[in-house]
């Protein structure tokens, strides 16, 4: 049997969110600074897995320059149902 390209499942894509001023402020970055303003259109917000676990990053998509990085959830996209319990 030969492979048939049309039978292959479509891939899944990671969304990269266009950054807003609110995103930058939440990450402790001044959106009005000249450096940020110059590259604003190139900034994206998305989760990454790296040393130390999962993070939400804001990066320049052209240069990979990192504008902000803050820890994300412990298990990334998976959440425990038990997280909804009130334990104390």
């Amino acid at each position: 049997m030969q492979r048939q390209a049309q039978d292959l499942p479509d891939g899944i894509w990671q969304e990269r969110k266009a950054v807003t001023a609110a995103d930058l402020l939440a990450a402790g970055v001044d959106p009005a600074s000249p450096e940020i303003a110059r590259s604003f259109e190139q900034l994206e917000l998305y989760p990454v897995l790296s040393e130390g676990g999962w993070y939400l990053v804001i990066k320049n998509r052209i240069s990979l320059e990192e504008i902000a990085r803050r820890p994300w959830r412990l298990f990334g996209p998976v959440e425990l149902l038990s997280s909804s319990l009130v334990l104390d």
Partner: peptide, 15 residues
């Protein structure tokens, strides 16, 4: 991912 991130608690301290 991104919707969840907005309301999620932060993970452990960053390396």
């Amino acid at each position: 991912l991104l919707k969840a991130a907005a309301g999620s608690s932060a993970g452990p301290a960053s390396t």
